[in-house]
Each structure stands twice: as C-alpha cells, then as structure tokens.
Design a protein around this nucleic acid. Structure first.
Lengths: 204, 204
DNA sequence: TTATGGTTTAACCATTTGGTTAACAAAGAT
DNA sequence: ATCTTTGTTAACCAAATGGTTAAACCATAA
C-alpha cells in the first residue's frame, strides 16, 4: 500500500513546508533550501511547482489570509446583536489563533513589508467589509442599547484587543514575566475577559 | 566654520541611516550597502565603527527600545490615579508614535525573530516592571473606584489598544478604506477615544 | 617639515542564495 | 515493447552580500 503514485502530493508538502518556514522567518529570512529540507525534497522541485520564491510566498500568504478572513466575517456579517457578536468573535478568535500562533504576525509583518499585497488579496478572497457592522452599531446606539459609539473605532478596538497579544507575545511574556504556560492561561482568561471589557464599555 | 574636524560624526550618521533602513526593512531585509548609501559613506566604514551587521543592528535596536521604555514607565511608575495615567498615557503615546511610526512594528518584529533580545535589553535599559501598577489597580478596586479588574489584563488591554493600530496600519487602512490622511485623523480621535473607552469599562 | 595615528576608500574575497540545466526515473499511452 | 510525458535529482551558475585589506588621506603633534 501507499507509494503507488510517483507524486505523493509533493505540491502539498511543499506548501506545508513553505508555510512553516515563511511564517516563522518571513519572506526575507526564509531560505528556499530550508523549505526544501523541511519538505524532504530537492530544491529544484520548489521551482518546478512554484516557479519562484516570490510566487511560493504569495501562495502561502493568500492561503493564510483566506484562513483569517472568515474569522473576521463572523463579526462583520452575521445577524446577531453586537453584544453577541463580540462575545462569539472574541472566544472563537482566541481559540482559532491559539492553533495558528504565527498567523497574525506573519500577515501583519508581510503587509507592512509590502502594503500592495492587500489589493492583490482583496480580489481573490471573499472580502469582509465594514458597512454592515457600522450600520448595526448606529442602529443599536439609536435604540438605546449602546452608548454613543463610533463603529470604526469600535472595530479597531475589538481587533486590537484580540489580535495584539498574539502579535506581541514576546513583549507580553517579558513584561509579565511569564512563560508559554502562563501565556496560554492568560489567553484562556481573555476569551471572556476581553468581551466583558468591551461590553462594559459600550453597553448602556 | 564647519569641517574643521575630519570625522564629522560619521558614527552618528551611520546610526541614523541604519535606523532608517533597519526599521523599514528589518534585520533580514536590510542591506549594509543600502545603509552606507543612505549615510553617504563607504560600506567599509560600517564595519570600521560597528564591526558587523549584527552589532550595528543591536545598536539600533537598543536605541529604539530605550526610546520606548520611558513611555511605558509613564503608565507603570507614576503616582497619579489609574484614570489619569490612562488618559495621559494614551494621549502621549499616540503623539509619540505618530512621530516614530516604524518603531513599534520594528521592535515587535525583531523580538519575534529573536525573543532572547528581550533579556539582552532588560539589563541595559532601566526596565519598567508591572508591580506598582498591579498594586495600584488592586487598591483602587478595594476603594471602590474601579470595578473588579485584573491588573495584568488591564495592562494588556491598554497597550493593545494603543499600539496595535500602529503595528497593523496597512490592515486597518485596508479594512476601513482610508489613506494616510484618514488614518492620521482616526489616530487623532483615538487620543481621547481610547482612554474614554477604557475608563468607561473599568470605572465604577 | 615630517612623522604619526586615526579615518576613508576602492578593490577584493568567500560564501550564500535563488534559480537553471541536463540527465535520469517512473508512469501512462500507443 | 517503446515512445512520451511528468516528476525528480545532482551539479552547476551568476548575482548578491557581509566582510576584509591595503593603500591613500589628512589633521596635528613633534
């Protein structure tokens, strides 16, 4: 069994290895040889399947981004109340990122390196927009459910509180003098602490 | 006038150029030649004054970090009330970073690349600790000024809300469909919006 | 004036790195 | 069986890059 076909999904192995290396080291720090080693194949295969480092990188980046986009959609385009959305998003997002710890930093870093990537991605992925969220905030303010609140600022606050600790993990570990275990505990607490913090602030 | 001395502070020019290049491109993306060009001198001078890329980088990094540390001290080791600290810090920090936009991302990125830097820095710089802040939060909770609040989580929230938008600028510009001007406006609003948001949440 | 010492430069070097090539291997098609 | 296509590899290449060197430069102390 196994090994009937020659190409045991080499392409997939490459993408997997590339994901690991690129997410840990970034475009500039990553080495094609290291990706090949990690995939257990010859370096020439990387070019056979993906032509260039740049294209391989873009494949990984698109992939990562399209993993994150649906997460954001949960808060932007869903029909529950703002309060429920915040609760769900916070808890889900922290769970999700705990499984993909390099993801947010990778995306942010590479977006800073080359902001044009955003446009490139925007076309491929089904892209979340803010309109609905802003309207919903206005509506709930009007109804007296929320205090006067700017939807854009609220959106920034939500993603800041949820994403930042995973982007700045070493900084937080350093200041709080905690190790990986302590960090995980803290993030576990944040699944509820963050949404409470936000809701306390905006709910009338 | 001028040009009496041979070494017109070449060392300083190098550091300045290195700062620019390293902060924009990171350790891996930076090129010694580019730093030399930006400083308008021969590449060999970089090695004459700083021995190696690694050491030049560390000089820049230490410098950047010791610029940021005092900012954090404002919130950690100062005698005003929690509420006032948050107000002052938020406003000051956003002003400060607007003048050094690459700083937070640079530090976070390079700390992720090599978390050991933290220890290296911790020895040099007068290093802010969380003890005082945590005690103060507990005290104000006890006195009934604040709702029950965990000091560590509050600290994370404060720095998340203040720093994240500057780390993830391209992301935010993308989602909100705004340009540099719109972004600056938004950050200007945040000088008060963020502290109100936090205080609304924790004040009894 | 001329040694002297730090400063600066052009040329050079070894290594790394992304990418290519040519030969080979394994299936599938005929 | 043999031809053809696809997958895979070792060896190779040119460019880039961090770093070195030896000579030139130049302010100044003797």
């Amino acid at each position: 069994m196994a090994k009937t076909n020659k190409n045991q999904d080499t392409e997939g192995q490459i993408l997997e290895a590339a994901k690991d290396v690129f997410q840990k080291k970034g475009m500039d720090g990553a080495r094609m040889q290291e990706i090949a080693n990690e995939a257990g194949i010859n370096k020439a295969m990387l070019h056979y399947y993906y032509r260039s480092k740049q294209l391989l990188f873009e494949a990984v980046f698109s992939n990562a981004f399209s993993l994150l986009a649906p997460q954001l959609n949960k808060i932007l385009n869903d029909d529950s109340s703002i309060e429920n959305k915040i609760k769900n998003f916070t808890s889900n997002y922290i769970s999700f990122i705990s499984k993909h710890p390099y993801l947010p930093n990778f995306i942010i870093q590479e977006l800073n390196r080359n902001p044009k990537f955003f446009e490139k991605i925007q076309q491929n992925t089904a892209f979340p927009t803010l309109e609905k969220f802003k309207n919903q905030v206005s509506a709930e303010v009007e109804k007296g459910i929320l205090k006067p609140t700017d939807g854009e600022q609220l959106f920034i606050n939500i993603i800041s509180l949820n994403i930042f600790p995973f982007v700045a993990t070493p900084l937080i570990k350093g200041f709080l003098k905690i190790d990986e275990k302590g960090f995980k505990q803290l993030m576990e607490q944040r699944k509820t602490a963050v949404s409470e913090f936000i809701i306390n602030s905006i709910k009338k």
